[in-house]
Simulated scan of single mutants.
Amino acid sequence: MSQIHMQNPIYRQRRLTNKVMLTLSLIALLFGLFWLFWIIATLLVKGAGSLSLSLFTQITPPPGSSGGLINAIIGSVMMATVGVLIGTPVGVLAGTYLAEYGQRGWLAPATRFINDVLLSAPSIVIGLFIYTVYVAQVGHYSGWAGAVALSIIVVPVVVRTTDDMLQLVPNSLREATAALGCPKWKMITMVSYRAAMSGIITGVLLAVARIAGETAPLMFTALSNQFMSWNMNQPLANLPMVIFQYAASPFPDWQTLAWAGAALITLFVLAINIIARTVFRK
């Protein structure tokens, strides 16, 4: 066997290839980080200055008046909370079936494929679907319709995370509980869930971050509301729609509020991702 040194042409070729690929990877990393930091810096410069107490105490104003985004913030929190409460149990149970019961047969692979399609589906398609099956039937927009649309976005994220986390649980734990005569349902709830809990919670938090800025599904379902409303059966104000409407308006005060709302959502999503990747990491 020949020694590896600079005179070896195979070694020199592999070393050159390694340097080229490392350089291209570094360039791609810097290119992506450049745009990311530029977007965050633009939002902070134009929106952070408008983050004041009035933003969290006053409702959206008419043109030419001062105001805030409290009604939009409350509407977004209400719909996101209901969406997560609907989507999380469905996602966790579906992911549990795929990881614990879907080792044989065609149903589990088909479900994973459909879940991956739904995970990458444009959110506007989900909004149009809920509009067709719910909004058009009842004859009006509502917060419930928006919450259902957001829950459909939550489901595939939680399914994928739950499936992946449960598959990482060592089979030796399952075999040990089976050897003790433990039923499978109890093994799942007492062993598998406990071992994968941090990963499942991380998936739920990432799903919350995913739906925090969704505009397209709410355009077809919840629409918006200029006033404070707690009624989920009526059109409900929400941050994404307010940002969309105010950013496209010709009024400078509305545009300022749009930048403030965009900065607020960005900071929230950034905080959720940091929490998900640090607090629950083991």
Results as ranks from 00 to 15, higher is better:
Arg112Val: 02
Met21Leu: 04
Thr81Asp: 09
His5Cys: 08
Ile124Phe: 08
Thr88Pro: 07
Met79Ser: 03
Ala258Gly: 03
Asn171Glu: 09
Gln58Cys: 04
Gly139Leu: 13
Pro62Val: 12
Tyr246Ile: 09
Thr162Phe: 05
Pro63Gln: 08
Ala121Lys: 09
Pro62Arg: 09
Pro61Thr: 06
Ser76Tyr: 13
Thr17Ser: 11
Val133Phe: 02
Pro235Gly: 10
Ala263Arg: 01
Met78Cys: 10
Met219Ile: 10
Ala41Thr: 11
Thr132Ile: 15
Gln167Arg: 12
Ser192Glu: 06
Trp106Asp: 06
Ala176Ile: 06
Arg210Asn: 00
Lys184Thr: 06
Glu100Ala: 07
Ile74His: 07
Gln7Asp: 11
Ile265Glu: 08
Thr221Ala: 05
Thr132Tyr: 15
Thr266Arg: 01
Pro170Ile: 11
Ser192Met: 01
Ile126Phe: 01
Val90Asp: 11
Ala149Tyr: 00
Val133Leu: 10
Gln137Ala: 01
Tyr134Met: 05
Pro250Tyr: 11
Ile211His: 06
His140Asn: 13
Arg194Gln: 05
Leu43Glu: 00
Leu16Lys: 15
Pro240Leu: 01
Ile243Asn: 05
Ala271Ser: 00
Tyr131Ser: 01
Val154Cys: 03
Leu264Ala: 03
Leu30Ile: 02
Gly181Pro: 05
Thr111Phe: 08
Arg194Lys: 13
Gly95Pro: 06
Gln7Cys: 06
Ala237Asn: 04
Lys186Met: 03
Ile188Phe: 01
Ala276Gly: 09
Gln3Arg: 15
Ala28Asp: 05
Leu55Met: 06
Lys282Asn: 14
Val45Tyr: 09
Trp38Cys: 13
Val157Pro: 01
Ile152Glu: 02
Ala276Met: 04
Ile27Phe: 05
Phe113Trp: 10
Met79Thr: 08
Phe227His: 11
Ile86Arg: 12
Ala247Leu: 14
Ala147Trp: 14
Asn238Met: 07
Asn115Asp: 07
Glu175Met: 08
Val154Lys: 01
Gly203Cys: 11
Trp35Thr: 15
Thr132Arg: 15
Val125Gln: 02
